[in-house]
Amino acid sequence: MRADARKNRDHLLAVAGTAIAEQGVDVSLRDIARRADVGLATLLRHFPTREALLDALLHTSFNELTAKAGALETDDSPGDALVSWLRDCVGWTTEYRGAVVLMAAAIEDPKSALHTSCVTLRAAGARLLTRAQAAGMARTDIDGADLFALVEALAWLGDQRSLAPRADHLFDVVASAILTSTASSDTEGERRPRARS
């Protein structure tokens, strides 16, 4: 890709990231193009679909979360590693309002531009879960698909303005339900205070 084309693409991604963070993933592509001071055709030339735009925008974050999962696989406490990754994953998905809905759909649709990234991210979380289960620190009746579904559910809570104040507390409730009692006591000191509403 030529340097000027790369610069234009990066500019579009920066503008799209701001617009999506403010208005959610349903923000008009025309509005993103207007904010970037380009025509809609220019935006579509770089990103032919909304999902292609989101995949490009979220790709770096997906890679970072996947890499973090890999690094955490050597953590001394598999339970703490799992909860740390889960918290980061949920926190990241709430940065872009509505992204979790697209992720939930994309993981079931191999034709989606987001599918590969979502599957890779789910597999990274599944490895952390399996490691915690093998150490007796996480319940064994859930799998990577369940864990990803919990990320989606917790991120959805964070997207709801009326429920957002309770999101941290509910995260702790879910994390406690995933971990066994031994792992739960290990992470108790890291828990955030219960949100009140």
Results as ranks from 00 to 15, higher is better:
residue 171 F to M: 13
residue 139 R to T: 13
residue 142 I to W: 06
residue 165 P to H: 11
residue 68 K to M: 15
residue 156 W to L: 07
residue 109 D to Q: 13
residue 168 D to M: 08
residue 139 R to P: 01
residue 96 Y to H: 12
residue 154 L to F: 01
residue 167 A to V: 03
residue 142 I to M: 15
residue 78 P to G: 05
residue 119 V to S: 13
residue 99 A to M: 06
residue 57 L to C: 07
residue 67 A to L: 10
residue 158 G to N: 02
residue 101 V to A: 12
residue 157 L to R: 05
residue 175 A to S: 14
residue 144 G to L: 05
residue 54 L to H: 08
residue 131 R to S: 14
residue 80 D to H: 07
residue 173 V to T: 09
residue 144 G to F: 04
residue 64 E to H: 10
residue 146 D to N: 15
residue 102 L to W: 08
residue 95 E to A: 07
residue 154 L to C: 04
residue 73 E to H: 08
residue 136 G to T: 08
residue 54 L to E: 06
residue 139 R to D: 06
residue 77 S to W: 07
residue 116 T to W: 00
residue 54 L to Y: 10
residue 165 P to F: 11
residue 107 I to H: 09
residue 108 E to S: 12
residue 130 T to N: 14
residue 66 T to F: 01
residue 69 A to L: 06
residue 63 N to C: 05
residue 161 R to L: 00
residue 84 S to G: 05
residue 131 R to C: 06
residue 106 A to T: 14
residue 101 V to G: 01
residue 82 L to R: 05
residue 158 G to P: 02
residue 153 A to V: 04
residue 133 Q to L: 14
residue 152 E to H: 13
residue 77 S to A: 13
residue 131 R to F: 05
residue 66 T to E: 13
residue 155 A to K: 02
residue 68 K to N: 10
residue 108 E to N: 14
residue 139 R to Q: 14
residue 117 S to W: 04
residue 110 P to F: 07
residue 68 K to V: 09
residue 163 L to R: 12
residue 164 A to E: 13
residue 166 R to N: 01
residue 98 G to L: 02
residue 128 L to C: 06
residue 56 A to W: 02
residue 77 S to V: 07
residue 97 R to V: 08
residue 95 E to Q: 12
residue 71 A to R: 14
residue 74 T to F: 02
residue 163 L to V: 06
residue 141 D to H: 12
residue 141 D to V: 02
residue 144 G to E: 10
residue 101 V to W: 01
residue 132 A to K: 02
residue 96 Y to E: 00
residue 148 F to D: 07
residue 58 L to H: 10
residue 90 V to G: 05
residue 65 L to I: 03
residue 137 M to N: 10
residue 104 A to H: 10
residue 96 Y to I: 07
residue 146 D to I: 05
residue 136 G to L: 09
residue 158 G to I: 01
residue 83 V to A: 09
residue 117 S to Y: 04
residue 77 S to K: 12
residue 93 T to F: 14
residue 82 L to K: 03
residue 138 A to H: 09
residue 163 L to W: 09
residue 72 L to V: 14
residue 151 V to R: 00
residue 156 W to N: 00
residue 110 P to M: 10
residue 54 L to A: 07
residue 148 F to I: 09
residue 151 V to I: 11
residue 67 A to K: 10
residue 152 E to Y: 10
residue 141 D to Y: 04
residue 105 A to Q: 15
residue 115 H to G: 00
residue 96 Y to S: 02
residue 91 G to L: 09
residue 72 L to W: 13
residue 94 T to I: 15
residue 165 P to E: 06
residue 98 G to A: 06
residue 121 L to W: 11
residue 70 G to N: 14
residue 54 L to W: 04
residue 150 L to M: 13
residue 118 C to K: 02
residue 117 S to M: 04
residue 87 R to A: 14
residue 105 A to S: 15
residue 93 T to N: 11
residue 150 L to N: 00
residue 83 V to L: 11
residue 102 L to Y: 12
residue 144 G to V: 02
residue 115 H to W: 03
residue 55 D to F: 03
residue 63 N to F: 01
residue 77 S to G: 05
residue 159 D to I: 01
residue 123 A to I: 07
residue 133 Q to N: 12
residue 115 H to R: 02
